[in-house]
């Protein structure tokens, strides 16, 4: 039991009469990379929003590190060490890459309500921020506004910002969506490098990425768990193949 970092029981979210997520029991083991896959509309992103409290579940419980977080606020969950990224890369566009990362580092100092102080004091975080940018291959664009970075680099910046919080667990929502091959390889290599000492739960469409990277895979369809296991087990499951490709004679 102790190696479970995140566990949901009976997690359900209904929108009107429609169950986007239906009775999902998810167990993520500490230190693993766990993938959440499934066709469009399977409820993967809703699941993410529930886990990070951007949505309130209709029923069910979520436990993170043994603590019940079902009724916590999103900012609180982030402080507990469960930090997410977004499907549409979420960076602060008109701030520089350095400032983006520094905002995460700055959060660790506690509340930043000191409006009477100069922002100069934030320079103490510059060293660490630059190191993080180097780590994701953005060392040369520290002072570039995020808005001018390429799509792949924005994603890398988002990961650097997430890493700055030193999260126990990272939730990555389609980290390679819409990327070129070269960018995909770079992000995969990056995830490999940063996984040490962390748990990662990711939504991913690119199955070759999932195959090479993930220890456990949960397949969702229509809000339910269809199958779970390692890549070989899951990909051999006929129901999974049907869900992805349609029936054999279709």
């Amino acid at each position: 039991m102790n190696d479970t970092i995140l566990e949901t029981k009976g997690l359900t979210k209904e929108f009107g009469g429609f169950s986007a997520v239906n009775d999902v029991a998810l167990r993520v083991r500490r230190g693993t990379i766990h993938a959440l896959i499934g066709p469009n509309g399977a409820g993967k992103t809703t699941c993410f929003n529930l886990l990070t409290k951007f949505l309130q579940p209709t029923s069910g419980t979520i436990r993170f590190q043994g603590r019940d977080i079902t009724r916590r606020q999103p900012a609180e969950v982030a402080r507990l060490g469960l930090v997410r990224s977004f499907q549409i890369s979420a960076v602060f566009l008109n701030l520089t890459a350095l400032e983006n990362v520094r905002l995460a580092l700055q959060r660790v100092r506690g509340g930043s309500f000191d409006f009477w102080r100069s922002e100069e004091i934030l320079h103490v975080y510059d060293g660490r921020a630059r190191a993080l940018l180097d780590e994701v291959g953005l060392g040369d664009c520290a002072d570039t506004p995020a808005v001018t970075l390429s799509y792949g680099r924005k994603r890398a910046l988002e990961i650097a910002t997430t890493l700055a919080l030193e999260p126990e667990m990272m939730l990555l929502d389609e980290p390679t969506a819409g990327m070129t091959h070269a960018d995909v390889d770079r992000v995969v290599a990056l995830i490999r490098r940063v996984r040490r000492g962390r748990t990662i739960l990711m939504v991913e469409h690119n199955l070759s990425v999932v195959e090479g990277l993930c220890d456990t895979i949960t397949v969702l369809t229509r809000g339910r768990v269809l199958a779970e296991g390692d890549y070989a087990t899951v990909s051999a499951n006929p129901e999974v193949v049907t869900a992805y490709l349609g029936t054999a004679d279709a």
Binding site: A78, A90, F92, L103, S112, L165
Partner: peptide, 16 residues
């Protein structure tokens, strides 16, 4: 500024 740019992201970094 972070809130103005992207409030959801600011929340997900742990800012209330």
């Amino acid at each position: 500024k972070a809130i103005r740019e992207n409030e959801t992201r600011a929340t997900s970094l742990g800012y209330r």
